[in-house]
């Protein structure tokens, strides 16, 4: 067992887990942040996607040991205060989720995309989002929602 202090969603959390424990299990089972999902454990499905210092990463293949030096970890629970991130609003407007299990991963991946590319083309969206699987087949609505969010963000910037 070892002690780690993680910065998750802008607050520090101390956990005691064996070295090498996947960040995903720490986030879910030890911190109780259940919005980040387990799907494959080998970075193939992307439903565990979180942000580490703003970059989308698969929590299932990251060892907790490497992320306790002040890296800023953000999960779906920390994406917005009250579920009103433009992507979350767009996801509802597009009625994107079906079972919903992959959608935290989809939204976190999309959020990182819009941070670096506020106005992505369909091809850019597909390329960036391709790592997140959805068995229900919501891909077309996910693309639509990302575009809607991008448009609303641009509109907001212009207004402000």
């Amino acid at each position: 067992m070892a002690s780690f202090t993680l910065n998750v969603n802008n607050s520090d959390h101390k956990v005691d887990v064996p070295e090498g424990t996947a960040l995903l299990w720490v986030i879910r089972e030890h911190l109780g942040l259940m919005g980040t999902k387990y799907g494959c454990g080998i970075a193939q499905c992307g439903v565990c996607t979180i942000h580490i210092d703003g970059n989308p990463m698969r929590a299932c293949v990251l060892a907790v040991d490497n992320f306790s030096q002040g890296q800023k970890i953000v999960t779906i629970e920390g994406l917005s205060e009250d579920g009103t991130h433009p992507l979350q609003k767009a996801w509802i407007a597009a009625q994107a989720p079906q079972c919903g299990y992959c959608q935290s991963g989809q939204i976190m991946q999309a959020a990182a995309l819009l941070e670096k590319n506020p106005s992505p083309s369909t091809e850019e969206i597909k390329s960036e989002m391709n790592g997140i699987l959805c068995r229900c087949g919501t891909y077309l609505r996910v693309i639509k929602a990302v575009k809607m969010a991008a448009e609303s963000k641009l509109t907001n910037v212009k207004r402000s």
């Binding site: 109780g32 942040l33 996801w91 509802i92 919903g100």
Partner: peptide, 19 residues
Amino acid sequence: RTEIPSKVDGTAQFAIDLQ
């Protein structure tokens, strides 16, 4: 759909999320 808002902010509860 009534349950969609809970599926965009991580609060929708699946059995695997139970503690």
